[in-house]
Design a protein around this nucleic acid. Structure first.
Lengths: 342, 342
DNA sequence: GAAACAAGCGAAACCGTTTTCGCTGAACCT
DNA sequence: AGGTTCAGCGAAAACGGTTTCGCTTGTTTC
């Protein structure tokens, strides 16, 4: 740590500086750098050389003011610590990053006050659009209709059908899981899930039950065992399940964590997976599904696609092609050794 | 989906609109809304009423141009999918969110090309400062010295000591872990870690070895067992360890995932934890440490504090109080049942 | 050789806000 | 009554670009 002051920070260079260096007016400099006509080739080169040697970076704020478009979007999340918003955020960031959009990130932490505060800040910065990300798939209040910019809701849909929302198709996810278990010959299928207050839990149960019914079957024990989204619950519920339904041959687990708990108990009891009991989870959360013995088959909710699609919908809306209503995106089965083979 | 066009989006209202509605000039309107003097109370109220009824939001872009400060910072991460940058990001977001700063988020995905592209975009948007987040604690190249704004490096320090970097103190973390094991009476301590190419692995090993040496001890088996940051490696290494060093009474595991693998093998062998062998991990990754049997003692790297501190350093630097060099932040032991009690 | 024309460049307006400074009118003082 | 002070307000400049439009040139055409 030296005690001396830092070297003076170079004032950022403006178009006026470039123009002066090239011996032209700002108007000509602007046209030269933006590929407009009405500039002699030799002049253009002189300006470009000057801009390069001065490390000129156009001030996007000034450009935004003229254009009326800031080239930025707001990402208003409520689940920054959770694992849902991150892949969504990544998908959105990637979709925008290809173009010329920059992303403002805000975390409202489920607090409506904080949310409206951030909303105001984002509108003040004249974002061209807004993506609102929730922490659960349960519907949430709209952030408002008469906003000056379009809004897309991701993961948590808006309660208002005028808004444009994107959610993973949890019903489909439940169906996919059971279809897979049926396809590998299972008939006595149980379902252990997380908190019943989560739409994600009940939706998946609905899809699972539907496919079972279509096959002329029903759940072993007739009901879904709801609890919490934890390994501990997975262990407890599996123990209870094995006690009351010893002939179960497959367990649908509401999350990968629950599935891990189930695998642990099956392992302790010497029940072979998948030969005697198959196990399937949801979320396809990398460290959990690949760390287990055996590795876990899981339904991936395609969060990154969700985020990318949300970004696309937003760009469309900014261009004037606004959509309305809730769009459910399909999920994807990732097969590993907890349901098949070896 | 209706086929009609969306209702026309209200053009955003400007100060001029407010001034006209209140029957004053823009200058007076500005002063009235910003609490300046030289405005009669009655006039101020009229302006405020007009602003409220028109839902006026000042255009931050215009404000930024005047002030020469945009009130934004760039967060340039290389590890958006990983779990290190997220808590750091949260800490930074929280530290800024309290004030009036907004955060631009970019993910360079370890690609220098993408990084410089994003850097250019951020500078174009005239961010007031920059936080660069890496995916490993190994030093990385600087993004440049002659930037018009201050930069703080978080997690991955800059190779250049002129830059300001913040890292978790991994040496300290290793020391803390061994101190704890010694304090609960362990003497035959082994160390299983991740990839040896990671500074995080070797730094922790260094701290652990130092404390052991100070106690007149050395590692059981004399060397750290490096491998990968996975449960599978934790299992394999633990099995090998138990074979060659059956009298081990504690295992320092380089990550919570490795520790989970170790716990599984100990459980399978019927070796009681913690009574016969204590296990400690690093990172304090919630779902892993609380899902295990028993719950896992772990060294928390205080990422959120790291992010918050990075934000503070950046704000200081923006105010002109630039620091230099690498600052290592202390870690925190979180004691659970894998090392004590029950 | 004069008229018509195009190429190349610069002056100026504009975006929305803040800030400085000058102006007006009322109240005060002698 | 005339001069001074001061509160209250507005005109204008500024930030850094983009765009329109008009002005010089030099070239072409009859």
């Amino acid at each position: 740590m030296d005690g001396f002051a830092a070297p003076p920070r170079p004032r950022s260079v403006t178009l006026r500086d470039v123009a002066r260096a090239a011996g032209v007016s700002v108007a000509t400099a602007s046209k030269a750098l933006n590929g407009k006509t009405d500039v002699r080739a030799e002049t253009r080169q002189r300006v470009q050389a000057a801009a390069a040697s001065l490390a000129f970076t156009p001030n996007s704020l000034a450009q935004a003011m003229l254009a009326g478009q800031s080239g930025t979007v707001g990402l208003l999340t409520n689940d920054l610590e959770g694992r849902f918003s991150i892949p969504i955020l990544m998908g959105a960031e990637n979709a925008f990053g290809a173009g010329r959009m920059s992303v403002f990130l805000c975390d409202a932490r489920e607090d409506p006050i904080r949310e409206s505060y951030h909303l105001k800040a984002l509108l003040g910065r004249r974002v061209d659009g807004l993506i609102v990300v929730g922490s659960r798939t349960d519907p949430r209040p709209t952030v408002g209709h008469d906003l000056p910019v379009p809004v897309v809701y991701a993961y948590a849909p808006s309660l208002d059908d005028d808004d444009c929302s994107l959610v993973p198709d949890n019903v489909n996810a439940g169906a996919i899981a059971v279809q897979h278990l049926l396809s590998v010959g299972r008939r006595r299928i149980a379902h252990i899930s997380g908190e019943v207050s989560y739409a994600a839990a009940t939706d998946r149960a609905e899809g699972a039950a539907r496919v079972l019914a279509e096959a002329g079957l029903s759940l072993v024990g007739e009901h879904v065992r709801y609890g919490s989204w934890t390994e501990a619950w997975g262990r407890a519920a599996t123990a209870a399940l094995l006690h009351s339904e010893p002939d179960v041959d497959a367990i649908v687990c509401g999350s990968d964590q629950i599935a891990r708990g189930a695998l642990d108990v099956l392992h302790d009891r010497g029940i072979a997976v998948p030969s005697r009991v198959a196990v399937i989870g949801f979320d396809n959360w990398e460290p959990f599904v690949t760390g287990s013995r055996p590795r876990l088959t899981s339904v991936d909710m395609n969060f990154e696609t969700l985020g990318r699609t949300a970004a696309q919908r937003l760009v469309e809306a900014i261009r004037g092609e606004q959509r309305h209503g809730v769009e459910a995106l399909p999920c994807r089965l990732v097969i590993r050794e907890s349901t098949t083979g070896s």
